[in-house]
Simulated assay, not measured.
Amino acid sequence: MADKTTFSCGDSLDIQQVSSLYKRLQKSVEKAINIELKADLVAKADTAGLQMFVSLRQELKALGGDIIWKKPSDELLQAAKLLGLTVSLGLPVAAE
Rank of each mutant, 00 (worst) to 15 (best):
A32T: 06
K70E: 15
F53Q: 02
R57D: 04
G65W: 04
G84I: 11
G90E: 07
I67N: 02
A43N: 06
V87H: 05
M52G: 01
T6D: 09
R24K: 12
K44Y: 13
Q16G: 14
L41E: 12
K4P: 00
W69Q: 13
T86Q: 05
L21N: 00
E96N: 10
V18F: 06
E96L: 09
D11Y: 09
A48N: 03
Q58L: 04
A79N: 09
E59L: 03
R24H: 02
K71S: 15
L76E: 05
I33Q: 12
L82I: 15
F53K: 02
A80L: 08
K27T: 00
S28P: 03
N34T: 13
K38N: 10
M52F: 04
A39I: 13
A39M: 07
L13T: 03
S55V: 02
K38D: 08
Y22C: 04
D66R: 08
E59K: 03
E36G: 13
A45T: 03
L91G: 10
L85R: 06
K81R: 04
T86H: 03
K44H: 13
T5E: 04
D40K: 12
L56W: 00
T5I: 14
M52C: 04
L89M: 10
A79S: 15
Q26Y: 00
L82F: 12
L56I: 00
T47A: 15
D40N: 14
Q78I: 15
I67F: 03
S12V: 10
A39N: 06
K27W: 00
L25W: 00
S8L: 11
A94N: 07
S73L: 13
R57L: 05
E30R: 08
V42D: 01
L37M: 13
